[in-house]
Write a protein that binds this DNA or RNA. Structure first.
Lengths: 191, 191
DNA sequence: ACCTGAACACCGTTCAAGT
DNA sequence: ACCTGAACACCGTTCAAGT
């Protein structure tokens, strides 16, 4: 008679993200995570595979959640603004979020999936998908970098020295306006 | 009779940065680094302190080196462009550079030092130091994020899907032009 | 089928002991 | 003063063994 299944991948990922949010990236150990789920560390491997795959699944889930929360918008400018703000909000809520993303090794399938999600999010706007991806990536890179710098133990002192929130607001505007200007020649003033 | 001193902090930092460049962040272990220096791991602690301080010293050294290599320029626009390109170049040369920076816990003194270096680099241009710091930080955040995303095992596939170099070039231009436009009102068309 | 205890090779770090 | 061997508490991971 099989032991009753206590685990499934979804529950593990939920708890892993909870753990990240409450205790940070260093707390994401297989033993610690297993303990939270009332189980021993080796049990996780059947469901998650090795730890790098657990981390990539967490990142993928966070990315999907953020896209869903941004939803549909009236123009790519408005969408991109909302996207940037959502990424920023996530990074203020989840410590070490930037480090998680940057330490993630995606599989080819995961990377293709994320690229497709990104393209789909801007598909119905008056913009070529190559420009859409490039803009998204520049916003994502900026927010990731700024969030990473403003996070962690240095956050308090850094925020004293530099107005992080203002930098975020200004730069997000600069990026959207700048990309608009560079693309406008191709799509006309109504694009 | 004391054992002859084989070690000093400078030599350790040089070797640590070499090791990072050739084998990546995972290879920076106290035992591995010590082995490279012909010594046992515990010997390092006298010189480096705990590992997080070794990492922050490495990051500080890399940042200082980059500022030196950028040097003096004719205007803040030209300086900021060169600064962005230097950060980008460093990240193409040193794997896991973004992860190193984002996993670094600076001491208060280190953070103050970096802030002062940054302010000094743009002090003799026609721009308020608050704007200078904000611009630098937005460029640094963007390049750090993009370099981090384009680095690591996913790099090849991501570069196939997205024109990373073009995104870097375009966004750097967008950032400099955008900050110029936002500041111009205060400094006039010659600033 | 699903979970576990024990083990392996690694970490960072400490410290008494050597010279 | 400077370095080391041994040890400690942790990792990720594997696997035979239990049910």
């Amino acid at each position: 008679m099989p032991a009753p299944a206590k685990l499934n991948l979804d529950a593990i990922l939920d708890e892993a993200i909870n753990l990240l949010q409450s205790e940070g990236l260093e707390a994401i150990t297989m033993r610690h995570l297993a303990g939270r789920l009332g189980v021993e560390a080796p049990s996780l491997y059947r469901h998650t595979g090795p730890k790098p795959r657990l981390l990539s699944a967490m990142t993928l889930r966070l990315f999907r959640r953020q896209l869903d929360e941004v939803g549909v918008r009236n123009s790519w400018q408005v969408w991109l603004d909302a996207f940037g703000r959502k990424l920023w909000q996530t990074q203020t809520e989840i410590p070490d979020c930037a480090r998680l993303v940057l330490s993630t090794n995606f599989t080819d399938a995961e990377l293709a999936m994320m690229t497709e999600w990104a393209a789909a999010a801007l598909r119905n706007h008056d913009i070529a998908s190559e420009h859409a991806l490039a803009m998204m990536m520049s916003v994502q890179a900026f927010v990731l970098g700024l969030g990473g710098l403003a996070d962690g133990p240095n956050a308090a002192q850094l925020r004293d020295a530099v107005p992080i929130e203002t930098i975020f607001e200004t730069t997000l505007g600069v990026l959207i306006d700048g990309w608009k200007a560079r693309i406008e020649g191709k799509y006309g003033p109504n694009g």
